[in-house]
């Protein structure tokens, strides 16, 4: 039977990379909801920008002293690139919790993959590729919306998208690695409530972290979100210095790299012991 397999499949065929074959399943599953999901990628930014950028922005921009604090730009322009990055974080964090546990304990799809020639590391890479895809769609959708506004229509948006993807992965990979060690979802709501939401609120998206108490600032500074926000905002508003850009990029890359290593290890333990 195996020889007939080889004949029919063809000996010289160039195969598809393993991670892509894992990714195909996520794509197919997601395909059931892609329309609503794509709509969400545009609607959510529009709502946030309308509410926070234009609504709250009108108040902020009228307050004396705030233009200096925000670097001389409108509040909309200040938060828009940051919201782009934060949206990628949100989507990636959610995708890294329940859907991962499904693969390990409910549908056991990842266990099914491990019974094929795929290795746990390749399964992990395929999942990472999927997180990246979700981040691209989220950040990309946000960037397209930002083109509609005069204050944010800059070439820097092109750089903000990969920054959003890197930030998304900087959250997705460590959280996925954590989820891969869990036998239930009891800790998941707490991760969102006490990890992701406070990060969203205090890591520089809505106001400069200099406004935070001095003791809290370092906490904001270690989150990947702050680095992503600084990069994206700097790129879109054209205020980024080369050293700052290198530093923030290096931190994000380190998070993504470490996350990928942790993920591979967690998948290896879970699927191969």
């Amino acid at each position: 039977m195996t020889s007939s397999t080889r004949n029919r499949v063809g000996r010289n065929r160039v195969g598809t990379p393993p991670a892509v074959r894992v990714w195909e399943r996520s794509l197919l599953l997601h395909g059931r909801v892609w329309k609503s999901s794509l709509l969400g990628s545009f609607l959510q930014p529009l709502l946030y920008l309308a509410g926070m950028g234009l609504g709250v922005g009108a108040l902020v921009d009228a307050t004396t002293g705030s233009p200096e604090l925000l670097g001389g730009v409108s509040y909309l322009a200040f938060i828009a690139p940051a919201l782009l990055v934060a949206a990628a974080m949100m989507v990636c964090a959610q995708d890294s919790l329940w859907p991962m546990l499904d693969g390990f304990i409910w549908s056991e799809a990842y266990k099914g993959m491990a019974a094929t020639p795929l290795t746990p590391g390749q399964v992990s890479d395929g999942i990472a590729l999927w997180h990246a895809t979700r981040a691209v769609v989220t950040a990309g959708g946000f960037a397209i919306v930002l083109v509609l506004f005069d204050d944010t229509r800059t070439w820097g948006l092109l750089a903000a998208v990969p920054v959003g993807v890197a930030t998304g992965l900087a959250f997705a990979l460590p959280i996925t690695a954590w989820a891969a060690t869990r036998d239930g979802d009891r800790s998941f709501p707490a991760i969102l409530r006490f990890g992701i939401i406070p990060t969203f609120l205090f890591a520089g998206v809505f106001f400069p972290i200099e406004q935070l108490p001095a003791a809290i600032q370092p906490i904001a500074m270690v989150t990947p979100l702050w680095h992503g926000v600084e990069l994206a905002r700097g790129a879109v508003l054209g205020t980024l210095s080369a050293p700052a850009a290198s530093l923030h990029s290096a931190v994000l890359v380190a998070y993504v790299f470490a996350g990928a290593v942790l993920c591979r290890r967690a998948f290896g333990r879970r699927l191969g012991s």
């Binding site: 397999t5 499949v9 393993p18 894992v22 099914g112 094929t116 020639p117």
Partner: peptide
């Protein structure tokens, strides 16, 4: 089909 893809079958 998804499962077959794990074996890199076209």
């Amino acid at each position: 089909v998804v499962y077959g893809r794990y074996f890199d079958i076209p």
